[in-house]
Write a protein that binds this DNA or RNA. Sequence first.
DNA 1: ACATTTAATGCTAACGTTTGCACAAAAAAA
DNA 2: TTTTTTTGTGCAAACGTTAGCATTAAATGT
Lengths: 344, 344
Amino acid sequence: MKLENITIKDIARALDLSVSTVSRALKDSYKISGETRLLVQRYASEHQYRPNVMAQSLKSQRSRSIGVVLCNVPNVFFSEVLSGIESVAYNSDYLVIITQSQESYQREVKNVQNLAWRSVDGLLVSLSTESENLDHFTRLHEQGLPIVFFDRVTDLLQTHVVVADNRGGAYDATVELVRSGYRRIAHVTSSPHVSITLERRQGYFDALQEAGLAVDEACIKYCMHGGMVAEEIEQAVTELMALPSPPDALLCASDRLTMGCYALLRRRGYRIPEQVGIAGFSNFNAAELFCPGLTTVRQPAFEMGKAASELLIGLIESKRPPREYEQRVFATELVARGSTARVR
Amino acid sequence: MKLENITIKDIARALDLSVSTVSRALKDSYKISGETRLLVQRYASEHQYRPNVMAQSLKSQRSRSIGVVLCNVPNVFFSEVLSGIESVAYNSDYLVIITQSQESYQREVKNVQNLAWRSVDGLLVSLSTESENLDHFTRLHEQGLPIVFFDRVTDLLQTHVVVADNRGGAYDATVELVRSGYRRIAHVTSSPHVSITLERRQGYFDALQEAGLAVDEACIKYCMHGGMVAEEIEQAVTELMALPSPPDALLCASDRLTMGCYALLRRRGYRIPEQVGIAGFSNFNAAELFCPGLTTVRQPAFEMGKAASELLIGLIESKRPPREYEQRVFATELVARGSTARVR
DNA sequence: ACATTTAATGCTAACGTTTGCACAAAAAAA
DNA sequence: TTTTTTTGTGCAAACGTTAGCATTAAATGT
């Protein structure tokens, strides 16, 4: 019932040769007479011989596939990253296996172990918000499995890393808010476990400080599931707006949070940008169609996916570990729109 | 350098047993004394034995992985489908391999062949706009490779199919436009090669006819790349609006087209919904934040992904082909918003 | 003419499992 | 006690490749 393919043995039998000769003739290595080589290769292509990859994998201990571990595909940022990953893999003839952690530590662990066990040649990882302990990676990494982190990274492992300039992006957005006349800028962000949260917060801090504005911890709300659960966002916004002196602007740290906050503000009838300004990280490119247009910090997601993929494949295909691990940082792009246009 | 795992042989040697006994003890089959079974199983779990999947695959000719072929991951609809696929696969312990055709026939063929050759157990496919010839599927299908089509399907192959009620969705949206007072409704759609185009067009036709409105072929624009190239959309809209009697409303047939047309109309200064109404298929759930809110036909993408995945896994795991192939049709949901609200 | 090199091919063992069959020892039946 | 059955285990082949070493025949050197 399964697809019966012709094997190297069949060829050997048909041509009255040994399997080793056939094998060698096909990868034109070693000393094989041009005659037999041609004979074998013609027979092979005529009969549509395709080497059995499972056998090859078993022999070589390589599968020409890479595993991707990320939170959630429908997140615009991740879907673009994934697209970038796939496009590089396609050209390099690697298969891309996708898993979602759904921001769950448990699920991340299971996925990573499953992928490793199913013998991917390398791993492309963006950590879940829940992940603090990274043993599931360190063990594999020590055993020599190539891993590249992107977006939500860690310095507990010595390896390549692909990130956006998170500090810079948050800084730029905050500066824009300040420039527009906002003075009490709140920050709605994700779990402080993940790298991007800290970096973005730093950019927010830096900009406030430069502007001589106070940093108020009460104005920072951490959504532990990165906005995967709608209630988090609702609670964060509610609490912020109930403060004795409520914020006049929101800086949101992720796709989901930005959209969530924006929608909520509008639903609750806040006037944007007069009453509350809002800016945030988002890769949704129709933000200009919103009412008012949403000021966003855009990350070159597709390019980041490509870079991560390239670095990983480099790691996989080089015999020796590199002398130095790269940290590739991509510039973000601030697109200022109506949602922060309080003043001309 | 690669992760050295303990093998069944190691266990056999350590316990002074034969490999076959160990193998059998581990899958507690056959007649093995409780004693040895326990011994083996304890040793195995203590030493973290994990069967080598490549060897198992080679033996069983199964890989516990499924291949997905779709156009483009960042498309909201597809990313949600993919998420549904992954979630079912995760629970059933299948790996999901993702490939993008980017609406290219060539690429689709290469991906399909590559996946089959790399021995996935089954295929989940949404056809590219360019695909007319489906030989690359029929051959594999005849050889017994389970395939399930979703979204852009075909009846050239006898297999399970998962679709939205495309005719109904387009019908509902058109009826809504008519109800709002639009009388010359154009249709911007994708390549007529793909099933969804025909079905959606049919719904559009039916609604027009029921309303006693004329069907004008000049009012139907086919974007052969489904809107992947921005120029197609631009050209379609330009041509429509340049007609002797230009349309007063647009019905768009896909995520990308809907967004593209909406953005273009706004950029060109058309007043929506007074001058031109617009409605279309789209899974973008922030359409309510647009200005005006965008009337959309929503497909239960995640559920469709789940269904497709379940059907495929069913196919893979049943010994015999099913007596009958299913065509699972999911209802769409029309969300009427400002972009079609010409009259109260 | 014989020794030595070179070229082309074959044999065999591996990679880690699974499984039909054979075998031995113990238990049951005669 | 002998025969038969049962129970547990081992052997070996298979899945489709690859690669080190051995082998043969031909070609070159002396």
